[in-house]
Each structure stands twice: as C-alpha cells, then as structure tokens.
Computed example of a mutant assay.
Amino acid sequence: MDAAPATAVEAATHRLREEIVAGALPPEARLRLRDLAARTGYGATPLREALSRLAAEGFVVFEGQKGFSVPPVTRAHLLDITRSRQFVEPEALRLAMEAGGAAWEDEIVASLSLLKREVERRTPEESWLDVYEAKHHRFHRALIAACPLVSLRAFCDDLYMQTTRYRRLMKSVTPDWQRMAAAHQALADLVLARDAAAQQALRDHIGTTASRVLAMFGDADPP
C-alpha cells in the first residue's frame, strides 16, 4: 500500500498522475496552473514541480511556449510501453524470485486474495473500478517487490501505470472476471514455486492485456 505523500509536491504529483491515468484529465488536455490550482487546491509552486516530475516520467508533455499537456494516446506508444514491459518486468521478476523471502511470498498471497475478493464484490460504478485498479496494482508490485534493483522496480511501475492509463481510457477492462482471477492465480502459483516459466507467463499476461486495447486501434496482431 502506498505511503501518504510527505510533501505538497509529492501529493500534487500523486493527485495529477492518478487523474491522468484514470482519464479525469483527458488526452491532449492543456494543464494550466490556474486551472489545476482551482481543481486540486495546491499552489502554483508545488504544481509546477509536480508537472516537471510527471513530464520526466512521461505522464505529461512539455512543449516550449505551449506549456504542459496530457499526452495523446497512440498505437505506437502503447506498443512501445508494452514491449518495454515485456522486456524488463520478467527480468525484475527473475531477480525477485532469486532474492525473495517469506515476507515477499506473504505479500503476493495477501495481495492476490484482496484482488480476488474485490472482483467478487464488483459493481458497475467508476468508484469500484478505482478500488479494483489499486488492488490490481498492489498485486503486480508484489510480484517484483523483492527485486534488489530499485531503479528497475521504479521503471516497471511507471510502465505499468502507462499501460493502466490506456486500459482506463479505452474502457478495455476484461468482461471475463473469473478468467482474469484464474490467470492471476496461475501466475502467482508459478512465482511462489520459483518456476522459471513464470517469466514467460508474465510476458504473456502483459501481452494479453495490451491486445485488448490494441484491438480498439484496429490492430489484431498481439504484441
């Protein structure tokens, strides 16, 4: 679970990232400080720093005299982040399986249980989807939490959030919830068994998620 942001800059960064990922700030929307201050209650200084941080992470675009804006959604960008995830996340998982101990295993089991329970209580409200996404994110973080390379984990997390933005914007959350729960259980079982097949399973899982979104771009080829 995320710790509470320690500063106004961190809180503003978290708030804006969440709104961009959820689509509350839509693609290509201009991010003007005055509007954001009225929307969030944060001052211009922390908001400016938050936007600079988000630009470095790829969640915001900065263009000279035009200022900051939300990135567009494109097939090329989705393929980029998907293939990048398929390249780096299985490696982070391999390192986690080598280094992980009992606490790592316990968090995988706990986060999976919370995810499955959330699926069982699903509702059509957007607020439920926000809670589900938080539980889903916790599970994927748990898988690689024992990876000793902090920068690699952070990069994986940024790519995960970029993928989530596409899923949310394209309304591509799976309609087959039971199959989704089973897929996460199977992935967790391989990881907890330290089975090398877990790497390919994770790679396939990432590709399956992206394929649903790519289909909405008219692309039938899996990543």
Rank of each mutant, 00 (worst) to 15 (best):
P72K: 03
L214W: 03
T208M: 08
E105N: 00
L129T: 10
E118L: 13
G23Q: 04
R48F: 07
E125L: 00
K66S: 11
H77Q: 04
A193F: 09
D176I: 04
G101W: 06
A11E: 13
A145G: 05
A146W: 06
A103C: 13
V21D: 05
A102C: 05
L152V: 02
R179T: 11
A103V: 11
D195T: 06
L51K: 05
S69N: 00
G58V: 01
L54F: 01
A220V: 11
A154L: 03
G218W: 01
A50L: 07
S211A: 15
F68T: 01
G64M: 03
L202K: 06
A134R: 15
V61N: 11
Q185M: 04
R85K: 10
K135R: 15
W104H: 11
L192S: 06
S69R: 06
A29M: 12
S113R: 14
P46M: 08
V119I: 14
R194T: 03
R117H: 07
I144F: 02
V88D: 09
F139P: 10
A134H: 10
L159I: 00
T164E: 08
A8S: 15
R153H: 03
M170L: 15
K116G: 15
D204P: 00
T164L: 15
E126F: 08
V191N: 06
A197T: 01
T40L: 14
E118C: 14
L31I: 04
D106V: 07
L114F: 08
R168W: 00
Q199F: 00
T7L: 09
I20L: 07
R34S: 13
Q178I: 00
C147Q: 07
A198M: 02
E49S: 03
P222H: 01
A154E: 04
R138L: 14
W177F: 10
P26G: 06
E107H: 08
R32I: 07
V173Q: 12
A56E: 07
R39S: 09
V88H: 05
Y160E: 09
I144G: 08
A215L: 11
R117Q: 06
R85F: 05
T45Q: 03
R15A: 14
E19F: 10
E18Q: 14
L187W: 00
F139V: 12
R15Q: 05
R30P: 09
A134T: 14
T164C: 08
R153D: 08
M1K: 07
E57P: 03
A181E: 08
Y166R: 01
A12I: 02
V213Y: 02
A183D: 14
H136F: 13
G64C: 01
T209K: 06
R167W: 01
L143R: 01
D221Q: 14
S172L: 10
Q185R: 12
R30K: 11
